[in-house]
Design a binder for these strands. Structure first.
Lengths: 348, 348
DNA sequence: GACTCGGATGTTATCGATAACTCTTCTCTC
DNA sequence: GAGAGAAGAGTTATCGATAACATCCGAGTC
């Protein structure tokens, strides 16, 4: 049997909670007045407001969000579209979004994008046409979802790439991982490494990803040889496979990885190849995921403020939905290189 | 043809997507008939059904979930209440729940419980009174939320503890980590360790947690000394702090940890204490979180099927909501000890 | 042929809210 | 003192669906 709401009042359990009508009846006013009190939009006399608020408290009344939304009330719910939440970046961004949204009184929906999810069903993931959405578009699936969203959906997105081509989309936030990658690369060069190899995460665009670009620029600017980037996936295993054959070459002394998981795989490959870290080989990751400080050796990595990014993304959406009242978009931290044990001077 | 009553506005903006009325008008039937076709509950002639379906396709009509829910339609949305999703167990369970729910056509809401969130506001996290919920109750906050939910909320929960006291709640799923902890303990004893120390995760109940219990039982049954469990938190740091002073004692040769993060901290403490793993000290974790296979040394741990648990939890909820049509609750895997490099024979 | 029966549909009420409009009162000008 | 404004509160329409009830009509029964 399905759960229905159309129960006759007689034998309905008393559990059904108070509606705006109940409040109105008890308070001796019209339900519209109750609505006014709730929303604080229109003017209500102080006496009436107090009475209504008291009745609301007594009855434990709480507005039905569905009804509010249906009636065209202010948007108070967001759906987050994200791909694989097993990845640290996406998961942390989601946490930031959820926290900010919840704090602002929004309810948060979540819908995970399959790698092969078609564009057609994206809109179906929203509870109603025009519902607000946030997209975590760090990978291809996310970017496609963002593109596939109908134009009438108010959306804000956390994206991987700094859009330096095409018109700026004011409803996007990103981390400057291009500068961060360049910084990490210069750090390694500064330790005396002749060049730096790079294991890349999958790109979300056809263009050169920002991290790859930053790494490339730094090498180029320093006049160092630029090796071919090694294509990796998201997992430790893919990092392991990407560098396994490379590490036999002792001239490879520094590896920058597109994320910490790749670095984990690279460190294992190094162990198996008999390379000492950081004596023989320096490894630097990206993300500063929770385990990285406790790895053996602990991982030098670029800390990325995904949670802050997520909060900012919601802040942006909030302003888009309600420019008048939404608070300023919170700032998030710049990427920061965290130096730990896995990196050191180039071998003599 | 004349339609009375709920006639949609003539001059509605074109941007608004099709409603059931639009479909009805184009198909030349009443909106109730469209509703019948959508829900397939009542009988509709084959010709009419075909025509309506065609119009639905043409107009790209999709039912508004909010309106359906408000009108008392079948429940098609769930809110997941969970505490800190930064923890692997909760995050993986959430993934399983989301996947299963999405596959079944449910929309998924998520609300993260703060450590100190009061009981009063739990019901406020649901979009309407009586909305379905799932609770990830692996810790104290989750358990309290589960208790605080009003009785009229259809809920299923993933809990930490096997309820062997009190009446069985048929709407709960759990992993048998008691048996798993016992198994892991026996494994270590079998390697020749005199006893096994245990670093505990925080308890979700006042009673002895299942993992602690299983560890205790195994030691007791083998007639070994039972050391005091070491209270840990959830983080690597807490594991590090919990055992730092202990490891000076060379008679401590085996440590079982309540989760992999604790194990990570324990391994670092061991490194600093100059203890070799697994030569001097065996470390076993719990969860089989993604990095554990790539740690140095790779971590022996108990694999827990959190995703399967999450899927099962949704399956249970689905059956609760719709006993007639919901598919069978999917099975999930038993805990399994994954032996890797971090454990070995007791030192001579 | 009147009557019942049940399948196929249409009509109306309802869910719980908001928006737009209306209706009273007062107060303030001139 | 009459009309303009504005505050405070009520009425009605509407959002997009489902449930309950009403209606229509052809087939079978006696």
């Amino acid at each position: 049997m399905e759960v229905t709401g159309h129960m006759p009042a007689q034998d309905a359990p008393r559990t059904r909670s108070a509606s705006i009508w109940d409040v109105a009846r008890v308070a001796g006013v019209s339900q519209q007045t109750v609505s006014r009190v709730i929303n604080g939009k229109a003017r209500v006399s102080e006496a009436t407001r107090a009475r209504v608020l008291q009745v609301i408290a007594e009855l434990g009344y709480r507005p039905n969000r569905l009804a509010q939304a249906l009636a065209g009330g202010p948007v108070r719910s967001v759906t987050v579209l994200t791909s694989d939440t097993a990845l640290y970046g996406a998961a942390a961004t989601l946490r930031g979004m959820e926290e900010a949204a919840r704090t602002a009184g929004f309810s948060v929906g979540i819908s995970v994008l399959e790698r092969d999810s078609g564009q057609a069903d994206i809109a179906l993931r929203l509870n109603r046409p025009g519902e607000a959405a946030m997209v975590i578009a760090f990978d291809d699936a996310g970017v496609r979802a963002l593109r596939a969203l109908p134009a009438d959906v108010p959306v804000a997105a956390a994206v991987e790439r700094q859009p330096d081509d095409g018109p700026d989309d004011p409803w996007q936030v990103w981390l400057d991982d291009r500068a961060a990658a360049a910084h990490a690369t210069r750090y390694l060069l500064g330790l005396g490494h002749r060049t730096v190899h790079y294991v890349a995460i999958p790109s979300s665009t056809s263009a050169l990803p920002q991290r790859t670009q930053g790494w490339h620029d730094a090498l180029h600017a320093a006049g160092r040889p630029v090796p071919e980037p090694l294509p990796g996936g998201w997992s430790p295993r893919s990092g392991y496979l990407a560098v396994r054959s490379l590490l036999a070459d002792r001239s490879v002394t520094a590896v920058l990885c597109g994320n910490d998981d790749l670095a984990l795989g690279v460190m294992r490959a190094a162990r198996e190849a008999g390379r000492d870290i950081p004596g023989d080989l320096s490894v630097v990751g990206f993300d500063d995921s929770p385990p990285s400080a406790y790895l053996n050796p602990s991982l030098t990595t670029v800390r990325l403020d995904f949670e802050g990014l997520g909060r900012a993304c919601f802040g942006l959406l909030h302003r888009r939905l309600d420019p008048q009242n939404a608070p300023a978009v919170p700032a998030w931290s710049e990427p920061e290189l965290i130096v730990r044990e896995s990196s050191g001077p180039a071998p003599a």
